[in-house]
Design a protein around this nucleic acid. Structure first.
Lengths: 234, 234
DNA sequence: TCAATAGTGTCTCTTAGACAATATTGA
DNA sequence: TCAATATTGTCTAAGAGACACTATTGA
């Protein structure tokens, strides 16, 4: 057990409980989904929650390291190229253990890089719709999911977020679908491709790709500096 | 002294130091400035820093209340209509007292609502340019200021941020200057007014206003739901 | 009259949006 | 051939940017 387990309710009067939760999102069947885990410990045991854990100052150099450790322990996810802070939820009421502070992170990964099984400390995992994660979530995690989605939608353009949901090589249609999954709206095909046409940081790859019994689509690779020129808001 | 004063360096191994810093911005001579206070306590005594303070779980219902309390104590600022979370800075190295976590807030106020004198716990205050706060700031507060400014620039449109820098009644030129002060760029007058022309939530007030020896300008009032339609990015 | 700022008009150019047309594959 | 998707082209309308023009005040 970690040193954190020895924290008592009395400590809460002096020190807040500092934890990190991670909203890990992927494309599942073309839809933006968030990974939930079933809580194995009290409080709220048995309820679905974002993977999270308590800060351990002895092990974590900063809160981003805490987030990576939590993902590793709870979901066996190793490397996470995109990991961003969303915001802090705090207060006396949100956790029955007392005054608490949760720093929410958002991570994006292609689905095939997320192990299907649960991690060391978790029995069960599930993908829920990011826009409609459903009821019965532990703590204030429904608000957490909403905040993460709002951040994604606000910044989908400037930081080329959809790339983190795709493989290294992708078609323009796949890129468009990823954008649509984040925004929750549809995008006009012609206009979408038009603005990408003259972008030098989006390079076509030699060799075609086919999605079945149709015309094959050109595969592209994103150069390091790629991002959408315009906001791409919903 | 508060209970927090009893925290020892040894506690840092188990519990992080949780503090809140506030970047309070105003228009000073048409430029966006941030309020700094001279630190009166160790560590970094005598250096300029953002007004900040340690979370007191016994008094603060959540971190936003902490931010309001800090502003009140350090700068005698009472009501703050616009107060928003920016992000968290964390880690073992950023504060000599050990593992620490600082939640940064950003506040906007018209200059005439910020008392010129220092607060109860501060001897000296100063306005620094938000884009160029200068060197020698305490801790990692130069990064804090940069993060707050970046947030303001990203969200200047959607939430009508400039209104919080102006009085209730303002001219279109004043509104434009406030936008420019946040963005750090100039805005084309004709296009700026064009997009505001048909906005029903921006109401002209009966009675003119004059800025000296020129044609008087129409005063406007913003209805509750006002915000810029488009992003207004720099 | 002039200086200074408020406010409007006009032109061009870019781009989004809608939608049609063509291209290329497997079955 | 057909179904399905990729890719391009065309038209239109809205908006941004540049810039000139008019309006109204005090001095």
């Amino acid at each position: 057990m970690s040193t954190n387990s020895s924290r008592s309710a009395k400590d809460r009067a002096l020190y807040p409980l500092v934890s990190v939760d991670v909203a890990l999102c992927s494309l599942v069947d073309g839809k933006l989904k968030v990974l939930l885990v079933r809580r194995d410990n009290e409080p709220q045991r048995g309820r679905w929650a974002l993977p999270g854990g308590v800060l351990d100052p002895g092990r974590d150099a900063d809160l981003e390291r805490t987030a990576r450790r939590v993902l590793r322990e709870k979901t066996d996810v190793g490397d996470v190229p995109y990991l961003e802070q969303v915001r802090v939820f705090s207060g006396r009421e949100r956790d029955p253990r007392g005054w608490s502070l949760s720093v929410l992170f958002c991570a994006l990964l292609p689905l095939d890089q997320v192990p299907a099984h649960a991690g060391r400390k978790v029995a069960e995992v599930a993908w829920r719709d990011a826009g409609q994660p459903g009821g019965g979530l532990a703590f204030d995690h429904a608000r957490h999911v909403a905040a993460a989605l709002a951040l994604l939608r606000d910044t989908v353009g400037g930081r080329a977020l959809p790339l983190h949901l795709l493989r290294d090589a992708f078609t323009l249609t796949e890129l468009q679908r990823a954008v649509e999954a984040i925004l929750g709206t549809t995008v006009e095909k012609s206009a979408f491709r038009r603005r990408l046409r003259d972008d030098p940081s989006l390079e076509p790859i030699e060799g075609a790709f086919h999605g079945g019994a149709q015309r094959p689509a050109q595969l592209y690779r994103a150069a390091p500096g790629f991002s959408f020129e315009k906001p791409l808001r919903s």
